[in-house]
Structures are given as structure tokens and as C-alpha cells.
Design a protein around this nucleic acid. Structure first.
Lengths: 152, 152
DNA sequence: CAAAATTTTGCAAATGCTTGTCAACTGGCG
DNA sequence: CGCCAGTTGACAAGCATTTGCAAAATTTTG
């Protein structure tokens, strides 16, 4: 059977860990201690934490880091396209590395777990639809909200 | 040529205007003057206004209506499944009647315009993917963000 | 290597959207 | 027409996020 979609739950680690420090330094951004801590956290992250969660993890490394700095750093990285921001269910923004290939999300409405997947067929259909409507897609968002099927 | 998707920009009017008053009254909800004004606005609406916009339109009919009441009414209707709430781009919630058939959205990133469309093939693919991941879809969200193609 | 130049930080206060509180008001049945 | 739980408007409060500012840290210069 042809697999035209697949789970890519560990995609972030599947790809080479990006060297944020070099990337930012080359762009003329200063590498400070708070930023280094946050970048390390992001690099090691496999889930989709929100700002508060990143802040908690950061504080456990360096208790002087402020939440403002987390937000400022996330915004900085988002503007550079280094991370993606999601707002599942309208809740607080949750972040993930942008280094991996594009993918969509399936959110478990009971646990909040996020499963990544990708379907080339859906990607292609989206392109077709947008083109027919006279548009070029700049980006898109596909989120499936579901509940684990009961093992019968 | 087989059309397997279509624009449904005027879908809301394509369907019979729902009688919110009767619907709510039957459910034991009181029809007050503020609510009537808001319901009338929603019934006449073809776009996807946010709370503040609904409030502005309501005030022009009855200047005593408060923003709180708009939010309360929207929440009431949302809980009853009468309207849908969207948070395009993480901005303020925008609402639309739920009376029409399900559809997805293409948002013009330059103007904020929202075009409704539907693709049964995409719907089906989503089902397949969720099933394969062991989930049942409760609801989903597909938003294409694009820019109008320049007529060359 | 120290001082200047510039960016970044932590803190607190501010913002934007949304919900909660509460006394006053009002639909709609009796 | 009167009652009274459901509603309202006004405003305070709540959350997530952003911003102003003086102090602190980083890079640049001399």
C-alpha cells in the first residue's frame, strides 16, 4: 500500500539541529545569556510549548530571566522565520522550530497533545483551490481537532 | 470539467435565513431588545465581523447596547452551535453564521477579505489521515492565507 | 584592556480582547 | 398588571502579550 501521508512526530529531531547562535550572530543580533538559554531550550524541544512554559524551563536554568525576554526572543525568531507560532483553539501561542519540513497538526482535544503529519495530496489540493480562486498561497494552517478512537 | 470544489462566497444567503428568535425562544432563552438587535445584525451579515464591529453596528440601531452584551450573546450563540468563532492570524475572534454547510476559508493577507470554499476531496483526505492516526475528527480548521495573483 | 557606543534586559505599567460582578431592569408567564 | 428569574449596562478584573525606561550587558573603538 502506498503511504501518501505519514506521522512525523519526531520530525524536529529528524533534521539537523540548526545553529541558532551562528545564524543570529551573522544577522547582527547579540547573543546574550538569556537568549542563549532560550535558544538551547528551543533546540532541545520536541513539543509545542507556549511562552509561559518556555519561561519556566528557562528559569530553571537561569532564574534571572524574565518573561518579557522570552516574548521578545520569540518575536525576534518568528520575524526571522526561525520558529512558527500557533494558536490552537484560540489559546496562548505555542511555538515550534521552523527547521523541519512543513507539516500540519492533529490536536488531541482531550489531552492537548499535538501530532504532526503531512499529506502531499492535501498540499496539492490547496494549491489548486487557491489558484482557481485567483490567489497564491503565502502560508496556510490545517488543524484537525480529534479524540482518540476507542479500541473496540 | 468536473468541479470538485467551489466558491461559496454567498453561502450564508444561499441558505434560508435561520429564525434565531424562534430557535432561542424554544430553548427557553429570553428575547430581549439587545439580543434582537444583535440577532438581526447577524442574520443580515455576509462577512465575518469581530465583536467590536458587531458592537458598532448594534450601537447604530440602539445606542444603549453594551459591548459586554455583544460578547455574552456571541458566547451564547457559540455554545448553542448557532455561530462559529474564528481567530484568523491570532487576531480578535470573528464570527459567522453556522447555518450554512461546512466550509473552509481563504484569507486575503492584504485586505483581510475572507473567501469561503469547500473541497470534498480535502474533507475526505482529512478523515483518512485522522483515522490512520487513530483519531476521530471532532472539528477542523483549514485556512489558506494568500495574495491575489497579479493579472499579468 | 578600558571607555564609548549600542543593544538588550528586567521590571512595572500599559494594552487589547474577553469575562466576571452586581445593582438595576425587564421579558413573559400567571 | 405584578412578580421574579433571567438580563443588562457599567465597570472592574483577567489573560496573554507588548512596551517604556533606567540599569546592565555586549560589541566596538581607541
Amino acid at each position: 500500500m502506498l503511504v501518501n501521508w505519514r506521522i512525523i512526530g519526531s520530525m524536529t529531531t529528524m533534521n539537523h539541529k540548526p545553529d541558532y547562535e551562528k545564524e543570529l550572530r551573522d544577522a547582527g543580533v547579540r547573543i546574550t545569556r538569556p537568549r542563549r538559554v532560550i535558544l538551547d531550550i528551543l533546540t532541545a524541544t520536541e513539543d509545542h510549548p507556549d511562552a509561559m512554559e518556555i519561561f519556566r524551563r528557562a528559569v530553571s536554568v537561569d532564574s534571572s530571566i524574565s518573561l518579557s525576554t522570552v516574548y521578545r526572543t520569540m518575536k525576534l525568531l518568528e520575524e526571522r522565520g526561525t520558529i512558527h507560532r500557533h494558536a490552537f483553539n484560540g489559546g496562548p501561542s505555542r511555538f515550534e522550530q521552523a527547521s523541519g519540513a512543513h507539516h500540519d497538526h492533529l490536536i488531541d482535544i482531550e489531552t492537548g497533545d499535538v501530532i504532526e503529519f503531512r499529506s502531499d495530496r492535501i498540499e496539492k489540493l490547496q494549491e489548486e483551490i487557491a489558484r482557481s480562486l485567483g490567489y497564491d498561497i503565502v502560508h496556510h494552517r490545517l488543524e484537525l481537532y480529534g479524540r482518540k478512537r476507542q479500541a473496540k
